[in-house]
Design a protein around this nucleic acid. Sequence first.
DNA 1: CTAAGACCTCACGTCGGCGTCAGGGGCAAG
DNA 2: CTTGCCCCTGACGCCGACGTGAGGTCTTAG
Lengths: 117, 117
Amino acid sequence: MRIGELAGATGATVRAIRYYEEQGLLRPERTASGQRIYTEDAVDQVLWVRTLLRNGFPSRAIAKLRRCTSAEEITPEQRAVIYEEHARIEAEYRAIAATRDRFESVLAFIGDAPKPI
Amino acid sequence: MRIGELAGATGATVRAIRYYEEQGLLRPERTASGQRIYTEDAVDQVLWVRTLLRNGFPSRAIAKLRRCTSAEEITPEQRAVIYEEHARIEAEYRAIAATRDRFESVLAFIGDAPKPI
DNA sequence: CTAAGACCTCACGTCGGCGTCAGGGGCAAG
DNA sequence: CTTGCCCCTGACGCCGACGTGAGGTCTTAG
C-alpha cells in the first residue's frame, strides 16, 4: 500500500508517517521512482507506535525496541530500555489511576453540588 | 512563605512556579517591594497542579477549574471541562493499562528469552 | 495525451512547559 | 555599609511531534 492508504487505515497523517520513518520507526520499501510502499503489517506497527507515543514514550526509545522481533537476540541495551520504560509506565499508571479516582469522586457530586478540585 | 521555600517544598523550580502564576494557576500575595508571598495551601496546590500536568492536562483546563472552591457555584463551563477531562483521563487510563499489561507480559519472558514488542 | 490527484523532498512554523541568561532590586549578617 | 543570597521582570532558547507551505514528480482516469 502507499502512504495515503496507510494514513487512512491508521488515522495518522501522511506527514506523521513520514516523521515516524525519519525517526527510524518504519522502513518502507521504495518504488523505482521513490514512492514508499508499505506491507499490511505497517498498519499494526503504526497503531502501536501511536499508542506508545500517546503513552509518553520518546520516539528514540521506540526506535531502540523496534529491532527486537520474534526470534532475534535481545541486546542488553534493549533490555535496559524495556525495564526503564516499564518503570516509567508503571508510575504513570498509578498517577493516572489516582487522578481518575479523584475525578470520579468529583463526578459523584456534580449534577447536584459543586466540589472542590 | 517565599517562592524559594515553596519550590523546595514541592520539588518544582522557581521558574515553574512563576510560570504557573503566569498561566493563572496561582495567585500569591505580594509584599510592598513586589516579592511573592504564598500561604501553606500553595504547597498542595502546586503538587496537584503538577500531578494534573503530568497526566496531560493542558494548563488552561486547570486554570478554568481553579475557581471552583468548596462553597462556590460551579459554572456550566467548568462542568463541561470536568466531563471532558474525565473522558480524556479515562481513555488515557485504559491506554496506559493496556500498554502496561503488554510490557508485563514482555517482562515475564525477559531474562530467559527475547519477546517481540 | 492531458489533467487531477497523490506523492516526493526540503525547510521553516507552532505549541506547551519550562530552562536560562541579563540586568537590576531587597534584606539580614557581620 | 557592604557582602552575599534571594528575589524581580523581561525575553530568548529548547525539545518533541508534528503542521504547513513551496516547488517539483508520478500515476492513473478519461
